[in-house]
Design a protein around this nucleic acid. Structure first.
Lengths: 231, 231
DNA sequence: CCCACTTTGTGCGTGCTTTCACAAGCGCGT
DNA sequence: ACGCGCTTGTGAAAGCACGCACAAAGTGGG
């Protein structure tokens, strides 16, 4: 299989690059399923929706894994990116808040494309606790610390209402979880060393609305609506 | 086609700022609910989880809406940001793919905090079409063009499986929708002038995993945490 | 009116990101 | 063996974004 010993473990991959590696990885896996053996930066960039120079620079942060005149070996690159992202080990995920969204997340197959395992589902509502969702029994939120400890949870997902999110985050942190994915529409307050990422549907919509409005203003006559002064 | 070639003095708000305006807006609305009349950049920045200088610079792109020595009038700022984001008008949203995620989105109240109205739910599965979800009847995907036209849909949300997403996106574009929010794990290919934003759960998880791994690698010494042992 | 105090708006230095452009490297055909 | 065509990897430049630090502008007390 693939087992070369080189270790270009350069420290410090730019954050912008890290955010794109999963996109490259997915594009590569699609190519792999199709049986493609090698791919050029140009082709991969197109599949990932980015500029090819950017892709090459991104990959160069991992090491020199391409062959000039040929391109990149798909399988090898999949492995290298997976390793860099930490997907060669398993991560246990706990989801708190089993409402509509929590259920969707629990049932989302691609969730655990590889490397991620849903270890627990928790909720505060007695009517929900005990239900079976996605082959797991929903536990009570009171067991959070216990579950984190016993099942080695390292990533916490918060899908609760906004009002409960900060409390859950605090308990995750207290229990030793240092990676949190937050779907609740609030700004979480956590100590240094804890990594929080947020996914916020209404923020995305509002950004879309901004651009849509700008397009509309530019297209027609903007005189119709509010008077925007130019300085 | 929308091209603004040599506009020397574009009235452009930086993209990074646009992405934060919704966060400020939410923080302001929370303050407003609490009855706060004015707020300093320092206090608002804390509530939004950003640096106060950054917040002031962001707001300065909208105009000089603050009062030195006092701060910002909450209500006025809420209005200004709302206007800038285009929330003073209504946006009709169509959601395609009424699986677990689509249902969650449809039922997500905060979705339409203000300015957004879910105009239609569509699916391809005959077993789902006709169901009543969030006070709406799920329609068949075949009616997409008709629905977009008749209900003035301007934002399309794609919550289908990956394989169907590109097709749905194409139909949205063909029907005249130029703002798309994509939850499917694929890179959408759309013509210039169409704005696509993506929300991708597994990408977020992978980014978290990357940082978690790096922390684990680097720490080496601090095995204080429960359950995180190394050799 | 004047002064002490508060808070905004922004010039500026710094560091990160993107993009261009091209030399260096590799495979293949001759 | 050699040169040609293709593709990577990367300097260098341009563009953004961030945050400090401070002048400008406003408030309130005496």
């Amino acid at each position: 299989m693939i087992s070369r010993p080189p270790r270009p473990r350069e420290r410090g991959i730019p954050e912008a690059t890290v955010a794109r590696l999963p996109v490259y990885l997915r594009a590569l896996q699609t190519l792999q399923d199709r049986g493609t053996a090698t791919v050029s930066s140009e082709a991969l960039a197109r599949a990932a929706g980015v500029n090819s120079a950017k892709l090459r620079k991104d990959l160069s942060h991992l090491g020199s894994y391409g062959t000039r005149g040929v391109g990149y070996e798909v399988e090898y690159l999949v492995y290298q990116i997976s390793r860099e992202l930490g997907l060669t080990q398993d991560w246990s995920v706990a989801i708190v808040g089993i409402g509509n969204l929590g259920r969707a997340l629990a049932n989302y197959g691609g969730f655990g494309t590889r490397g991620f395992r849903i270890a627990a589902l928790l909720d505060a509502d007695p009517g929900v606790v005990g239900q079976r969702v996605a082959s797991l029994d929903v536990g009570h939120i009171d067991k959070l610390e216990e579950v984190v400890r016993e099942r080695g949870v390292s990533i916490g997902v918060i899908a609760t209402p906004a009002a409960s999110a900060q409390g859950v985050a605090g308990r995750f942190v207290e229990a030793g979880v240092t990676s949190i994915l937050n779907f609740a529409p609030v700004v979480l307050n956590v100590p240094d060393g804890v990594d929080v990422r947020k996914v916020d549907l209404s923020i995305e919509l509002q950004i879309l609305a901004f651009h849509a409005q700008r397009r509309a203003d530019g297209d027609g006559r903007e005189a119709e609506r509010a008077g925007l002064e130019m300085t």
